[in-house]
Amino acid sequence: MKHIILSLVILLSFVGCDKTLQPDPIVQITDRCSSGDIVIKDIKERQKKDGFMQAQITGMNLTDHYFKVEYSVIWLDENDFTIDTILSEWTTIPAYPNQPFYINVTSPNTKSASFRLYLKKEGKIICNTQSN
């Protein structure tokens, strides 16, 4: 019996140590407590003829009220190094009640190979822990 328990403990401790990092999703909603208000419906990307990368993210305001969405795009080169640009500053767009909103972004240069987009509702969000 002792052996079984010991084996289980060892096995569990190994499972606990397995922290294999999952690849980051392309689009992340960063304020988790209000993520139920926003849903990402579509992500499109393409390389334009002039070499710039273009992306369109379609989100949806699931609530009955208007709010603004803030987003920031981090552009990465082919080696996954970030590209320093003014275009990564947080930007706001309107999200109308029960309507989709569109985020259109173009890369800062032609060396951009991929991107990560972070978005949240504008302003300070106070989580209601009971409802979440």
Binding site: F52, Q54, I86, L87, E89, T91, N104, T106, S107, P108
Partner: peptide, 12 residues
């Protein structure tokens, strides 16, 4: 904010 929007528009 103005510079960012103008640059994005110009590049796009």
């Amino acid at each position: 904010s103005a510079a960012q929007d103008m640059t994005q528009s110009l590049i796009a």
